[in-house]
Write a protein that binds this DNA or RNA. Structure first.
Lengths: 149, 149
DNA sequence: GTAGATGCAAAGTGTTTGCGGGCGG
DNA sequence: CCGCCCGCAAACACTTTGCATCTAC
């Protein structure tokens, strides 16, 4: 239940580190993000934040998302639909995108992690980030439709 | 040496299949694409095509890229810089993106391929496409800089 | 009190599209 | 010659930004 506490400590840590102000808008957006279990886009975050506090503009959402992303508090993803999707940062998980429903499933694969590091090393590179995404349709379903914005 | 032949046969096959016209513009764009060894974006393809035949507009490049992509003649990628990058379709290779130079290295990994199929299957999905990308910096180099458009 | 945050609307970017004219089959 | 294709410019979707105002510290 200590969502609020958990979330605040994380954000406050960020603000302390970077000397940022903890405004009402940032608090609201942070709350929305820490309560989300999906991968909302900016518009969606904006809608949810607006329900809580309608004095919030989409420009602020964009600015705050970038802020939190730069601080590594959230991760930005691009699942191929032309806009950014976000989630609180966590380690070691990847995504399986259902091309029919747009639903995003998460999975963990240590194998993948090790494989990436190995390949990076083989090429003389240091792994900074990676993308390991699977796009598929439920077994037995028909149309492997055309994605796209 | 038979670049033109190889390329034409591919495109002509596509045109035959889909009943499309082989216009001068499409021929030029196809030639540019089959000669490329990198992963040009639309602007770059446009520049190269324009050098060969300046009666070509960027709108046509966009339309042709989509056409070829839909026909699975080329693959579209998104390496996180906000625009689409293309290459002739080939199987089983993935990308390592140098975050400092933007350079894209290719590598093959059967392990990755098998891993993806396994994971998709485990979740009851049929693998349609995947993304296996490594973003890194050369070992020993400093700034793991900020990407972004 | 002041640096930094916000809201608003305008500007940017990459991409798509409606339309009249042009060209390949 | 007919229908698909092209160039042009306007429209789009998402994101960023300049400026005046407001607010957390």
């Amino acid at each position: 239940m200590c969502y609020a506490f958990t979330m605040l400590s994380r954000i406050e840590k960020l603000c302390a580190e970077k000397g940022l102000k903890m405004t009402e808008q940032r608090r609201t957006i942070s709350r929305v993000l820490s309560e989300a279990t999906d991968h909302p886009d900016v518009e969606e975050v904006y809608q949810r934040a607006n329900k809580i506090d309608h004095r919030i503009s989409i420009a602020t959402v964009y600015r705050t998302m970038r802020l939190l992303e730069d601080a590594s508090v959230i991760d930005r993803h691009d699942f191929g639909d032309g806009r950014a999707r976000y989630e609180e940062s966590r380690e070691d998980h990847h995504h399986l995108i259902d091309l029919n429903s747009g639903e995003v499933l998460e999975f963990i694969s240590h194998e993948a992690q090790k494989l990436m590091e190995k390949i990076a090393a083989q090429h003389g590179y240091e792994l900074v980030s990676q993308r390991f995404e699977i796009y598929g349709v439920k077994k037995g379903s028909k149309t492997p439709p055309s994605r796209r914005r």
